[in-house]
Write a protein that binds this DNA or RNA. Structure first.
Lengths: 183, 183
DNA sequence: TTCTTCTTGTAGCGAGTGCTACATTTCCGA
DNA sequence: TCGGAAATGTAGCACTCGCTACAAGAAGAA
């Protein structure tokens, strides 16, 4: 359905790099076009309007994120839920993931503001992420879906805490999640 | 230090109401002024520049939030950490708190984007919140500060999940936090 | 009253926003 | 080689943004 030429792909890649550095919701057409070596005129021509540009960008970024995540953490079952969470948090804290974290929090804030396009994309990303986590949970988990969602919720919390400079709190949550909370 | 007249207070209250409905980072001077029955010219006059307006607004909103939270959940020790988390989540999901959740996620996203003023305010809010939670933790908690930070991290995760329409995942995390994760 | 200081309205500047009208070039099939 | 379609450049429109210059009223002190 979405036939994109090699040229389009290059444009998207360049814009994605710009967005990963500067944020998504603050991006405007002219800077985006400049980063991609084209003009706002051309972006509108190819994507219809700004929403089209943002939508394509979101799709591109989401795909890049999951492939990067798969690269960093191949599909294999972890010994404990805590180890899996710690591994994902480590990846999310790496410099190359920082841009994705920024964009993700932009999506979340826009969703909370009621922008349904963002909320839908955000929900879809979470759905994919739940499956991704469930496939890496220790074997014998009674309710993998439920466990994956709980783990993801804690992960989201750590991203928020990291964003406001409270990685210490995030660490406390990870440690607590890894133990049973009693220590 | 911050002497604010009754008139200023009214202006701030009106602007806060506007921000709670429409978001913080998307707010601009003219709509803000209109909501407060004044002019952009006057906002600059009283607060210096837009950063001054936003700063005063953040201060006002933070104060309103903690007083509302104290009202909803007075200072008393809960029987379990899970019960405390569930109580806070219930409050945060109430319609009157929705605006604060929106604003909070705006602050988080701006912090991630590197806007230090927001990051500092966000960090301070978390600090206050940690103390607030610690004071309500069950007695006999070995490390209240650590437990409070872990609880808060999970709470932040639930807010993110709620924002993107995955309250179900948040519920899973709450249930898991309340038990020991084995059920 | 007169003078000074505080407060407010009017108007506008320069920059940026998404988007469009119009003309031109480029390219590919007939 | 020609003709139509796709692609691109130039210029600009109507709007919003944060902020400011200037002047006029309001209020209080002398």
């Amino acid at each position: 359905m979405n036939e994109i030429s090699a040229k389009q792909e290059k444009v998207l890649a360049a814009m994605a790099a710009h967005v990963l550095e500067h944020g998504l919701t603050t991006a405007s057409l002219r800077p985006l076009a400049k980063a991609a070596g084209t003009s706002d005129r051309m972006l509108i021509y190819h994507f219809g309007d700004k929403d089209g540009v943002i939508g394509a960008l979101l799709e591109y970024l989401a795909a890049g994120f999951v492939s990067g995540l798969d690269m960093a953490i191949p599909e294999e079952r972890f010994a404990t839920k805590g180890a899996l969470l710690a591994a994902v948090v480590t990846v999310m804290r790496s410099p190359i993931a920082a841009g994705y974290a920024r964009v993700w929090l932009d999506i979340v804030a826009a969703s909370a503001r009621g922008e349904i396009a963002y909320a839908q994309t955000g929900g879809a990303i979470i759905d994919g992420f739940v499956a991704w986590v469930a496939a890496r949970l220790p074997e014998g988990e009674q309710n993998p879906d439920r466990a994956a969602r709980a783990l993801l919720t804690v992960l989201e919390g750590t991203m928020v805490m990291d964003a406001v400079g409270h990685g210490d709190a995030a660490d406390a949550a990870i440690a607590w999640f890894s133990g049973d909370g009693s220590q």
